[in-house]
Amino acid sequence: MSYEELGAHATEIVRKAKEWELTRLGYTDMGDGTWMPPAGYSYADNQPTNYGDPGGTATQTTSSQDMVDRDMAEIDGKYDDIPELFSPFTWLPDPTSFDGAITGMENVQARLSAGAEDTTDPASGSPVPANLVLDGMDTSSDYLARWTGVAAMAFKQNFVDTFESITTNQFLAASYVKGALEAEKSLWHAARANVDQIAEDTLTALEHMDDCGKNEWSMAFTVAGAVVAIAAIPFTGGASTLAFTAVGGALSIGGAAIGNTDDPPELPMAGESPEAVCDAMREALRELKSEISKAEQKVYDSMVDLNNILAVNRSLFVAPRPDLADSGPGDIRDDMGVPR
């Protein structure tokens, strides 16, 4: 069974449940997908049209077809909601659709990695190869030794001295965005697997209701552990005040997780009738929706926190705009204040 067949499985659950109902009502399985009504139903057709009112005008009101229609209306009412229940789950995001964005963030990490120890990816625990271009900043002050004055001081303070911290913070921010993308990928991977499992277990349970033992099973919601809290490395320059819960994907965190390491929540399920099995399935689908929402909330909260940190502490992530950038030719002056 696979997720892509989920709609077909929902239809099959309905069909199987209805088979059980017809069997209980005494319909005969003709083996070709059709079911003949119980022989007793034809009794209704044999009643005189004035039955119970000899010589009167009363007419027959119930036929065998009416009885079949009544049965089917009752049965349809019990199970025809099932395809609709699965419908929202048939268009869950494709986990691989996050790969492009994840690769994009890996490229960002590679550009911002200065090769120091703290350029380890905090989500996966893997080191990110250094961008050698950034090494040039370490020796830039040698070239500037003979440059003096206000502009030289400002340049050193604003750009050289803070370069490492700002680059590290940018690297970490990019890593946390990548972690969130990986969390989303894991979340939808698990959600698809879980809903597929619910459908598969329901079909299996409908097949095994006749067994001599109790027809019980359980559903483990792995989606609950798909988004994991990771040990966030604090941002340089304000570490103690920047509380932040970073997240990663269970599929890619390695050993970096600090939460959600327990077994996934399990829902015990049982059913000895088609209604009970389908009710258990309905409960499992409700629980899955709830677990997906909780997992999504973790990613959302993490990204909102990160966004707030970036907005409030902009100076930790972006160097101030150079005065020179907004200057025209007339604004450039020499030591004597003469425009150049």
Partner: peptide, 10 residues
């Protein structure tokens, strides 16, 4: 007498 149509479940 009309025979009721069989139920088709597939």
């Amino acid at each position: 007498m009309n025979q009721p149509a069989p139920v088709v479940l597939g």
